[in-house]
C-alpha cells in the first residue's frame, strides 16, 4: 500500500454514470448514477457484493456495455460516446476467470501478438518477449495452449497480454478471485511490482476486503447499483466508515478474517 498519492491529477473522471439492462418495464439499472474519479498512479478499489454493479462499471468505461454519463473522461478525453482505436492503447482490462479470458485455441504467443497486430505495433516480438519476462513466465511456455497452463500461469498470460499495448490504466475485474490463496499472493505481488515499474493506475473490482486493504489507496463501496461511499482504505480498515452498509460488510469480512471472534456473535450484526 502506498501512503503518498503519486499525483492529484484525475486520470478517470466519472460523473453520473448510468447503465440499464432490459427495455421498457423490465429495464433495470445495474449502475445507477455513480460518480467518482481515479487519480493517476493510485489503486482505486470498487467493493461490493454480487449484483452491486461493480464489474459493470468497468465494462461501461471500456464500452463493452452501453452507458450514459454526464462525464466520462479518461486522461482528459471524453469517451462517453465513442472510443477510438487509441483508447485501447491507454486502457486495458484483466478479467476474473483467466481461462475464459484467453482464446482457447490460440497459443500463448498468439494471444500476446494479437493486440500488437491489431494496433500495428512495430516491435511486437520484442514486446511480447518482454511482457512474458515482466510477468515472470519462462519463454518456453509460449507455444502452449491455455488448457496446458495452471490458473496462475493463465492469469499471468492475461496480464502480459494487457501489457502488450503499454497502457496507462489497468482495469482489474476480480483478478484473483478464481485463484488459490498462494497463487493470489503471487499475482497481487506481481501487480504491485508492475505498478511501480510502469507507473500504472489500477481500477480494481473485488469482493474481498482483505485484497482491498492490501492493494488499494482509496475505495468506493457499492450496493445495488449505487455508490454508498468513497473513502481512503486506511480509514476503512480502522473503522472510520460512516455508512451502515460499509460497516456491515467489514464486520462480515472480519468474522473469519484474522480477528478472533466467534461466528454466532458476529452474525448478529
Amino acid at each position: 500500500m502506498v501512503d503518498i498519492m503519486k499525483s492529484q491529477t484525475p486520470i478517470i473522471e466519472i460523473d453520473n454514470l448510468i447503465v440499464s439492462f432490459g427495455e421498457g418495464d423490465d429495464a433495470r439499472r445495474a449502475v445507477d448514477g455513480v460518480s467518482f474519479s481515479v487519480l493517476a498512479g493510485e489503486t482505486f478499489g470498487l467493493v461490493g457484493e454480487s449484483g452491486s454493479g461493480k464489474s459493470t462499471i468497468l465494462r461501461a468505461i471500456t464500452g463493452l456495455v452501453p452507458s450514459t454519463a454526464t462525464t466520462l473522461r479518461v486522461m482528459g478525453e471524453d469517451v462517453s460516446r465513442e472510443r477510438g482505436k487509441d483508447f485501447y492503447r491507454k486502457v486495458q482490462m484483466v478479467f476474473q476467470d483467466p481461462y475464459e479470458a484467453l482464446h482457447p485455441r490460440h497459443t500463448v504467443w498468439r494471444q500476446l501478438m494479437e493486440p500488437a497486430r491489431i494496433q500495428k505495433v512495430p516491435d511486437a516480438e520484442t514486446r511480447a518477449k518482454a511482457s512474458l519476462d515482466a510477468v515472470g513466465l519462462p519463454q518456453a511456455l509460449r507455444w502452449r495452449y491455455p488448457h496446458q497452463l495452471s490458473g496462475g500461469q493463465r492469469q499471468r498470460v492475461a496480464i502480459a497480454r494487457a501489457l502488450m499495448l503499454k497502457p496507462e490504466i489497468l482495469l482489474l475485474d476480480e483478478p484473483t478471485s478464481a485463484l488459490d490463496v498462494s497463487v493470489q499472493a503471487e499475482i497481487l505481488n506481481l501487480l504491485c511490482d508492475l505498478q511501480e515499474e510502469h507507473g500504472l493506475t489500477f481500477l480494481m473490482v473485488t469482493h474481498d476486503l482483505g485484497v482491498v486493504a492490501h492493494m488499494c489507496n482509496r475505495t468506493a463501496v457499492m450496493q445495488s447499483g449505487k455508490l454508498v461511499e468513497t473513502l481512503p482504505v486506511d480509514v476503512l480498515v480502522n473503522g472510520g466508515a460512516t455508512e451502515p452498509y460499509t460497516r456491515k460488510l467489514i464486520a462480515a469480512s472480519e468474522a473469519y478474517g484474522e480477528a478472533p471472534a466467534s461466528l454466532s456473535q458476529l452474525t448478529k450484526v
Partner: peptide
C-alpha cells in the same frame, strides 16, 4: 499468503 485487513504488509509472502 492471505491478505489481512488489519495488518498491511508491503508484499505478501509467497509460498
Amino acid at each position: 499468503a492471505m491478505p489481512r485487513i488489519h495488518t498491511p504488509r508491503r508484499r505478501l509472502p509467497v509460498l
